[in-house]
Simulated assay, not measured.
Amino acid sequence: MSDEEKDRAIEHLANVLQAHLAPGYRQAVKGRSRDGASRACAASADDAVAEAMLLKRPPAIVQALHDERLAEAREVVLDVLVARGLDVSESVRVEVSRCADLAQLKRWLRRAVTATSAVEAVDLSGPLNDTEASG
C-alpha cells in the first residue's frame, strides 16, 4: 500500500470511526481538545489507532475501503467518458454504478480511453473485448 493510499485509508477510517462514535463521546473529546497541543496529541493518537486497525484488517474496515475504491473507479470511468466528449446515456451510468467488480471497472476504464462510444466502452461483447485480454 503506497503512502498516499495509506493516508486516504487512514482518513477514511477516521471518518468511519467518527460516524459511529456516540455523540456524547465526540463532545467530550472536543471539549478536552481546546488547545493546539491537545489537538495534535489527539490527532497522533487517532492516526495510531487508524494504522493499527488497517494492520488488523477487520472486515468492516476492509469492506469500507473496498467500497471507496469501487466508488472512485466508477467515477473515473464516467469522468473519462465525459472528458472524451462521448454521450454517456443513463443506461451506461446505471451499468457503471451497479458494477461491484474492480477488475471489470478497470477493463472498462481501459476501453473508455479508446472506445468510439460510451456504450462500446461498457459493452462486454464489444469489439475491444478480444484485444484487451492480451494487454
Rank of each mutant, 00 (worst) to 15 (best):
S38G: 02
K30S: 10
N15W: 04
R111P: 00
V76M: 09
Q63S: 11
R32K: 12
D35M: 05
V80N: 01
A121Q: 06
A71W: 01
E120Q: 14
V77R: 03
W108S: 02
R57I: 02
N15H: 10
D130P: 03
E95N: 02
S33D: 07
G135A: 14
L109P: 00
R74Q: 12
E51L: 14
L54A: 05
E4Y: 07
V80Q: 08
L128M: 10
S2D: 14
Q18V: 11
A133L: 15
V113D: 05
V96H: 03
S125G: 04
Y25P: 00
S134H: 10
E120H: 02
K6N: 05
E4V: 15
K106T: 14
S125N: 10
N129P: 00
E4G: 00
E132M: 11
V16E: 08
G85A: 04
L55R: 14
E68I: 06
L13T: 15
A14G: 14
A28D: 04
V16Q: 07
A42Q: 12
E51K: 14
R74S: 03
L55I: 05
G36F: 09
R39E: 05
A48P: 00
G24T: 08
G85P: 02
S89W: 04
E75F: 05
R84H: 07
A83T: 13
P23R: 08
H20M: 09
K30D: 13
A43M: 06
L78H: 02
E4Q: 12
A22Q: 10
A28C: 00
A103H: 07
E75Q: 13
N129V: 15
A52F: 06
L54C: 04
S44M: 09
Q27T: 14
G135T: 15
E5Y: 04
R74G: 02
E4D: 09
E68Y: 06
V80F: 01
R111F: 04
R8V: 07
E75N: 08
L21D: 01
L124P: 02
L105M: 05
L21M: 15
A64H: 08
